[in-house]
Design a binder for these strands. Sequence first.
DNA 1: CCGCATCCTCATGGATACTG
DNA 2: CAGTATCCATGAGGATGCGG
Lengths: 206, 206
Amino acid sequence: MPKRSYGQYCGLARALDVVGGRWSLLIVRELLVGPARYSELLAGLPGIATNLLAQRLRELEEAGVVQRMLDTESNGVAYMLTPWGVELRGAVGALVNWSTPLMITGPRGDAFRGHWLVVAVDSLLQHRRFQESATVGLAVDDTIVTVRVDETGARVELCGDAEPDTVFRGDPAVVLGLASGMLTVDQAMAGGELTGRREDLAAAFG
Amino acid sequence: MPKRSYGQYCGLARALDVVGGRWSLLIVRELLVGPARYSELLAGLPGIATNLLAQRLRELEEAGVVQRMLDTESNGVAYMLTPWGVELRGAVGALVNWSTPLMITGPRGDAFRGHWLVVAVDSLLQHRRFQESATVGLAVDDTIVTVRVDETGARVELCGDAEPDTVFRGDPAVVLGLASGMLTVDQAMAGGELTGRREDLAAAFG
DNA sequence: CCGCATCCTCATGGATACTG
DNA sequence: CAGTATCCATGAGGATGCGG
């Protein structure tokens, strides 16, 4: 009955009242990539229980972070972020950037989904500047993400129909190392993990 | 046995593995103002259970976010953020900014501590620009915070011995409204809640 | 006092089965 | 497919105790 709140007149506390629950921000992460069906959310959130996903979606919808929409393809429901929900990108990105040390040294064998790179690489490239413009594809497992940089900044998205002309295949850690600047292009390509034109990669992660 | 982890190779998930637990980020908020004793943390975190505070401090220390130090005054222990912990300021600030709508419309009667304004006002002023420089004091309850702005940005801190020459006394909501830009100086002073030289206030929250 | 540890109770989270 | 229902494990909140 009484939904648990911190009961503090403090911005951080009130924010956590809404998105501080377990799995809540991870659901937001999924929806930052784009609208998704319930089953897609389940697939993108390995480990979540079905009842929890349903409950969290209800809470986030009630709070005004998430809204339901009609999936025109299947005539079913899909979930998407409200404009206010999209504004969580900054907070999510800050946490992603902060966690870089944890991504380098942490445990192996964790679950991974290629589309997580969309939010992560975007955040990591956000505070970097680029002289040249470049568009490269990054293939991890069966997902291809497009990284497009120019003088105005970086944009990362899931690859749709139009594949970029240069696609690199590699390990998630290598991709994140490049994006965070912990790994140089030379180091990343040395292991032969990444294939393609070196100068394209250097421009995208310069 | 196994500390609860999301088990995802994702920056956000790994960050939440460390600071996603209940109360964790609020503890960080307290320490962003400065080092604090255990009892001070308890006072700044109304609602937390004593055992939880002890457990969270242990976890955060083990993760490298918090470190113990010697309190030279009392020869007791004090807690402070590590350099990596301080870097959470960006994420905390992003959540504070995001929560602005919740601070305007939310429930009344929540607990409040004056020093919470240090982190909040600092975050809210961070993305704003100022033509003139100004230093004003904001008094809420028995806490006075100093807001100092100039062309290079804003800095907010707890008022020590040297009180600023102009001190405004007001309601937390009015102060936050000013800092977020939701409230103009005229509106804030109209109710007579804030007293002092209007031009000083206008410069600090322009 | 201050800094916790213990104990107890109940709310929350997790796993799985089940249903419209 | 999109969730509920159920049941068990874990975690949080509150009071109290206790050593330094």
